[in-house]
Amino acid sequence: MGVLDLFKRAASPVSRRFSNRPAPAEELFDDEFQRKLEMLAMVSRKVFAGRMRAERRTKKKGSGVEFADHRNYTEGDDFRYVDWNIYQRFGKLLVRLYEEEEDLSIYLIVDCSSSMAFGDSKKFDHARRLCAALAYVGLANLDRVTIVGVSDGELVRMPPTRGKGRIFKVLNFLRELEASGTTELAETLRMFVAQHKRRGLAVLISDLYDPAGFEGGINMLRFNKFEPFVLHIVDNREARPDLKGDVRIYDCETGDERELTVTAQMLEKIGEAWRLYRESIERFCASRQVAYFAAPVDIPFEELVLQVFRRGGFLR
């Protein structure tokens, strides 16, 4: 390799993409982290005690024990479910419906694109810790937890698992995830919904820096009967980058370049655009009744998880 090649390589945005490595696996989920997970599991039980009792119910109505609703009798219905009291009083044949008890499927979808590892890789580490915490709570509640890493239009999937004893499998899976490639939420989640017929809660943990637009991915979940929950990983430092003077900026995922001179006014505009982008995500989720939760990297993950619990939507 000649000197010129070295120079080109050094100046290449692609080579710089790998300059910020995520935290080593041992540091990511250390003992302290695991103690916090246990604490979160306990707190989640306390918070929802008497209401949840470690089970969750789907909206499906079926052969459970708790009454849910009535419907008109149709031919072929089981006579055992006809509400004869109603028939006696109103002369109408109605069938009693019961809530069908079913374990909930939780899909934790982690964005593994390069933008998640931007800078000091705090976003990616933060996302994995949050994912691990939520997975642990889910496992502890005997839900079927599936973790999916998405990047570059591809899926990396940990098969559905249940029971908190499987947390180590989760942690190992998360450890092995790497942040690289582009964010293509719509395409990737299209593959996701195609592969996962069992609907459930789909927690999208991402910075939502999708050049094609974040809306496509969320809509893909919505339109396929998943219950999307957007956990937006936010690094406020990106609102005001430490830049000045003549620079050539390039997108850490797409490599798109642009020459410009960064001034204080421009930095203010960048901050404003970043804020508007974030607000647009919030507005989109609110208008579509999609649970949205911003997770700044400078807030500890356990605090964020508790905020998620308190706000509701993740555990019902």
Binding site: S115, V247, D251, L260, Y277
Partner: peptide, 19 residues
């Protein structure tokens, strides 16, 4: 110019469009 990576160039493009 000095090459600098940004996490999401779309935000910059919005600003640069005005310029």
């Amino acid at each position: 110019r000095r090459p600098v990576a940004v996490p999401f160039s779309r935000i910059w493009q919005q600003v640069l469009r005005d310029k």
